[in-house]
Computed example of a mutant assay.
Amino acid sequence: MIRYLSTLALALTAALVPPLAKAEKVVMYREGQLVNPQDVAEVLGKTRSIRLLDDEPAPPAKFIAAAAVALAKTSARVPVSAPVAPGGSNADAAALSLPVRFAFDSVDILPAARAQLDALAEGIKLLGPRSIVTVEGHTDAVGSDAYNLELSRGRARAVRDYLVQHHGIDAARLRTVGYGEGRPVEDADPNAAVNRRVQFRGA
């Protein structure tokens, strides 16, 4: 009976805790590389299904606690796939990444980043008027976790504000989130410049 209960607890924990995220395909542009608005619309225009958690009865509290402990142990860092060159097939790409340049230790967007953001805005305008785009801020691992998290959030908001103010995109269509250093590019040094990026995905 004890063996049965422990097996059941493990099975429920596995069901409640999502597996470590599989590295996703991300189209990654390099600094100065021309962004194709059609590619932007293709990647961000995909619809993703949403499963409502309220559709199922809640599990017992002790299993929720066990699941929370397991999740804390397994979800420290989520990998992002190695860079995928733009211009190829974007059929299974989940996001698009730009190396948006900011002033050092700041949320001020540098002029060098504007051409890519302008082309990105043209791609967003090709989407339906009710489409939602999530702007994700990411940093490298230099600095504390808390500092990098706040910096990534501020930079995501700065990009949103640029798209709204310079391109007239409705702010309600742009969600922002910061991940700090928590989602480095797979196989990259955590301190590498490639991790300092802004990603965009459809919602």
Rank of each mutant, 00 (worst) to 15 (best):
R3K: 14
R3E: 15
R3T: 12
Y4M: 12
L5D: 08
S6N: 04
S6W: 10
T7Y: 05
L8N: 03
L10K: 14
A15E: 10
V17C: 09
P18E: 12
P19I: 03
L20S: 14
A23E: 05
E24S: 11
E24H: 08
M28W: 07
M28A: 12
M28E: 00
Y29V: 10
Y29L: 04
Y29S: 03
R30S: 15
E31L: 13
L34H: 12
N36F: 06
N36R: 14
P37E: 09
Q38W: 15
D39Q: 15
A41H: 01
G45Y: 01
K46G: 08
L53R: 07
D55H: 12
D55R: 06
E56L: 10
E56F: 14
A58F: 11
A61N: 08
A61Q: 13
A65I: 08
A67Q: 02
L71Y: 15
A72C: 07
A72N: 08
A72D: 06
A72T: 08
T74F: 09
A76G: 12
S81I: 04
A82C: 06
A82Y: 05
P86W: 03
G87R: 01
G88C: 08
N90M: 11
N90I: 06
A91C: 06
A91K: 10
A91N: 09
D92R: 03
A94L: 06
V100L: 03
F102E: 02
F102Q: 05
D105Q: 03
D105V: 03
S106C: 10
L110A: 10
A113Y: 04
A115I: 11
D118C: 06
A119H: 04
A119I: 08
L120N: 00
A121M: 07
E122H: 00
I124H: 08
K125A: 04
K125T: 00
E136P: 02
E136W: 07
G137D: 01
H138L: 13
A141Y: 07
V142D: 04
A146W: 10
A146Y: 09
A146E: 06
A146G: 13
S152F: 07
S152L: 06
R155Q: 15
R155P: 06
V159Y: 00
D161K: 11
Y162K: 05
Q165M: 05
H167G: 13
G168C: 10
G168Q: 11
I169E: 05
G180E: 15
G182W: 04
G182N: 09
A188L: 13
P190Y: 12
A192S: 14
A193R: 10
N195G: 00
R197D: 01
Q199P: 00
R201W: 01
R201N: 00
